[in-house]
């Protein structure tokens, strides 16, 4: 949770022009590059999957159920005889899209929360941070049930349920640097010239917190995909027959010793995608903000 801004004098003296240094540092670390490549590949497959898949992802064929991997079906077929590879490709946009939009939601709400808390300080800060603690402590599954029960099942509501999970973390993450910046001269100067609260928050406080937001955003996408799959495991995920990966994995788990491809294919796909985002996030952290700990 502790963070020292990159301007710390003890920091590596070599990285004089900040941007170029960051970029160089990112590319020096191979795992970061690998993460970037994995992520880019997944994004490409997602785009591809929106237009073409080897088979229509929803076409059931009751005579071809649970077929093992073959030339015709490289990842085999599921219990309805649907081509697993096609479903994974078509499902990419649901899984990745869900991860992306859920974290965007969490980051937007959480960052504003954290900045506002730091800016107002005092009693407001105290109350709002305790509220964040409580939201953090609140069992996520209860929240998910409530959201799905009140709003009904569906992709959007799963996004909301997953997004809510990351709000308090973003709030805490942003509040720290913003709080530190509040004591800096330029913020006080802005105040002195009569800048409004909203202006100070958006112009001065949010940018200070941007590096951790970017880093955490990337790392959190993976977590969101995992959370969505956990919700599917608990039966609270997207509705069938949406080929979202977590739902495929949860539905396939019964076949673990019968037709392992139903579990392994989505399981490994999720792991790989999340691994990509995590490696990329790690690399970004090293590059942008080496001392950030999240």
């Amino acid at each position: 949770m502790r963070r020292v801004p990159p301007s710390d004098p003890r920091d590596d003296a070599r990285r004089a022009p900040a941007a170029r240094g960051s970029l160089a540092r990112f590319f020096r670390r191979r795992t970061a590059v690998a993460g970037g490549v994995i992520t880019a590949t997944f994004l490409a497959v997602t785009l591809l999957g929106m237009w073409v898949t080897p088979y229509p992802p929803a076409a059931a064929d009751y005579n071809q159920t649970l077929a093992p991997p073959s030339l015709a079906h490289p990842m085999g077929t599921d219990d309805f005889g649907r081509d697993i590879l096609s479903r994974l490709m078509a499902g990419a946009r649901y899984s990745l899209g869900m991860g992306l939009s859920a974290v965007t939601l969490g980051a937007a709400v959480g960052s504003l929360w954290g900045v506002a808390s730091a800016f107002h300080g005092g009693f407001f800060d105290n109350v709002s941070m305790r509220a964040a603690d409580i939201l953090f402590a609140f069992p996520g599954i209860l929240l998910a049930i409530a959201i799905v029960a009140v709003l009904g099942p569906g992709l959007t509501n799963v996004v909301i349920a997953v997004g809510v999970f990351s709000i308090p973390t973003f709030a805490r993450l942003v509040r720290g640097p913003a709080l530190a910046a509040m004591g800096q001269e330029y913020v006080e100067a802005a105040r002195a010239v009569g800048a409004g609260g909203a202006r100070i928050m958006l112009r001065h406080l949010v940018p200070v917190a941007l590096p951790p937001i970017i880093v955490y955003f990337t790392l959190r996408i993976g977590t969101a995909i995992l959370t969505a799959s956990a919700l599917s495991f608990l039966g609270l995920g997207v509705q069938p027959p949406t080929p979202e990966w977590g739902a495929m994995l949860a539905a396939g788990r019964l076949f673990i010793n019968v037709a392992p491809q139903l579990v392994i294919a989505p399981g490994v796909t999720i792991s790989l995608a999340v691994l990509g985002f995590n490696l990329l996030g790690d690399g970004l952290r090293d590059a942008l903000d080496p001392r950030l700990r999240v």
């Binding site: 099942p153 509705q239 027959p241």
Partner: peptide, 30 residues
């Protein structure tokens, strides 16, 4: 219900009713 087996059953019924023009929205619930 939202048990895996129930959802598979619902999915199959949805596919079958779709063939006679009845569009079924599945609503699995806890």
């Amino acid at each position: 219900g939202n048990q895996t087996e129930t959802m598979r059953l619902g999915e199959t019924i949805q596919q079958m009713l779709g063939k006679v023009g009845v569009t079924v929205r599945l609503q699995p619930m806890e």
